[in-house]
Amino acid sequence: MKAKLKFIVPLVIIAFLISWLVFAGVRDSMVYYITVEELLEDVPDVYGQKVRVSGTVVHGSIKNELDESLQFTMADGKEKIDVEYDGVIPDIFTDGVEAVVEGSISTDNIFVADLLLAKCPTKYESDEARYQRKKG
């Protein structure tokens, strides 16, 4: 039993060390996206750099061009930015959706996106429930 403990205790310590390393690494270094505010804070250093930015699509700002490209304004409560995009549009993309765009900001402060993603809702509602909620 003593021999086994000698074996298991270091193992548990190693497991905890690895988990801490993974946790700390994930917590500190990796950021999936930056906010519009953080993006604009980095101007002008960020010009031409590839970044991933998230914000809410401003109501009424979506403009579909004749050549099927898309323009809209993205805001995060403090700052906002105009986005230009030409590509596949997610099904749920509309006013008020939280969007994630990948691309870079040009010197005239327009974000040129190569990829547009939409965050799905965190609340799953039925038609009926939404109707009742809006009515009440």
């Binding site: 996206y33 609340k123 799953y124 039925s126």
Partner: peptide, 28 residues
């Protein structure tokens, strides 16, 4: 870590259940 990551980190995966989650319809 898989389960915690969506709660403590910025991401695209939704947090639906538990604290901070949006919840789902009773029939769902």
């Amino acid at each position: 870590v898989v389960y915690i990551s969506a709660r403590i980190k910025r991401g695209i995966s939704p947090v639906v259940f538990g604290p901070g989650g949006g919840g789902i319809d009773p029939a769902m």
